[in-house]
Design a protein around this nucleic acid. Sequence first.
DNA 1: TCGCAGGTAGAAC
DNA 2: GTTCTACCTGCG
Length: 304
Amino acid sequence: MIIESPIDLELTQLSGQTSQPPWAQDGGHFSNVVLVNDKPVVFDVKQSGEFLDFNFNGEISQKEAISQLSYIFDLDFDLNKFYNYLDNRAELSDMSKFCNGLRLFLAPDPFECIISSICSANNSIKRWTKSISDIKRNWGNRHENYYTFPQSHDLAKVYLDEEDEFNSSDIQDICNCNNNLKNCGVGYRAPYMRRASELFAFEIDIQDIFSMSYDEAFETILEVPGVGPKVADCILLYGFKFREAFPSDVWIKRIVSHLYFDGKDISVTKVREFGMEEFGDYAGYVQLYLFHYARKSGLMNRLK
DNA sequence: TCGCAGGTAGAAC
DNA sequence: GTTCTACCTGCG
């Protein structure tokens, strides 16, 4: 079944967006389990021409499947209109040809996105994706060969490290303590991740964030341990589809300084304000495109 | 071997 | 209010 909306699936999957790790890849197929109305559905998607071709296995209708995939791959976003916008701006006119078909890879589970984004802070793509996969395998539910991400109340209960596990369980040898967050390679982020889980298990209703204004959502999510401005914007963009977010890290800062400020070093805070002001509802997409343009065009190497 | 990279928290200014 | 430093781990 084909959804007739242009996308480059591989580019979108492998672009390192912090919503979630890429889906399992087999040839040109990408697959994963997604909870739809709390029921597990296994999706298998592949590229077909410029469109997305999919199969699914689960108790939902075809219409619901299309709706879910359209959300995850942001297929309702008008790429051609966006390319027209890019092409009309001198600084951005190269972007569309380097990143053609790149779309947001949105998290079907905003809680997974929150934990993934906390894990991605001050980390490499390779390391945080491995950590998230470990967390899913340890505490998620298995469906076929895939694992769901644990719910907030489940992750709120896990041990932080070997010592925590040894002290709180009846394991006799600390060497056998490997059912803990630190063992997933998250390092010092373990307590942030567990406290964030507690927050969403017991204090904040995650669904409320969808109905907030961007500013209100930003302030709310900033209160979560391990979440600063960069991670907050990633969460709002990839987890809650606030396209006006402009996640600004050192790379975006370097790229924006180069393209818009004649190479003059601008603070990350200013870059974020500039991006939101300059790009409005396209801020999230411009950020995504800037990063991959810089990567692919070789600009990133020159800015190091 | 060891230095480096990368956001946040908390302390220091 | 802004700036500095420690934090953990994998990689080169």
